[in-house]
Amino acid sequence: MNKKQYEKIVKKHTPKEDRFINALSAFIFGGLLGVLAEAITKLLRVIFNLTVLDATVWMMIVFIFTACLLTALGVFDKLTTFFKAAIIIPITGFAHSVTSAALDYKQDGLIQGVGSNCFKMAGSVILYGVISAFILVIIGVIINV
């Protein structure tokens, strides 16, 4: 049997993922998270009399802190199995990836362990985030000229 024929057998017996349901749940729960973020921002503006920009930054800090805390308490990984992409794609997922990697390498020391490994997964987000921001700014400048 050659590899092509084998691939067919593998395809036949490999279960399909529920892409539609996953996408729908990400849309609904991700959307709800957005609503929550908007509510927190509004609340912060009313209570502390902040500008929109300041209130947004504080809202993000609340989300990041909550995600890190839930990861450290060992709850976040259980939430991801239910909410999936809805909480992985927003900033909560980014905070979670840094905290979980740091926890994994806690026993390996502060430099060789936590220091060199905590951006193991978040590193790509930072690198390509910066690069795409750079490119977008250039495009923005060109368009505005």
Binding site: G74, D77, T80, I88, S97, T99, S100, D104, M121
Partner: peptide, 17 residues
């Protein structure tokens, strides 16, 4: 998990296979 896949607390989502 640590060695072959993702950090333990990350709880990466897994496919049915």
């Amino acid at each position: 998990e640590k060695q072959f896949r993702f950090p333990v607390e990350y709880g990466a989502l897994k496919p049915k296979r």
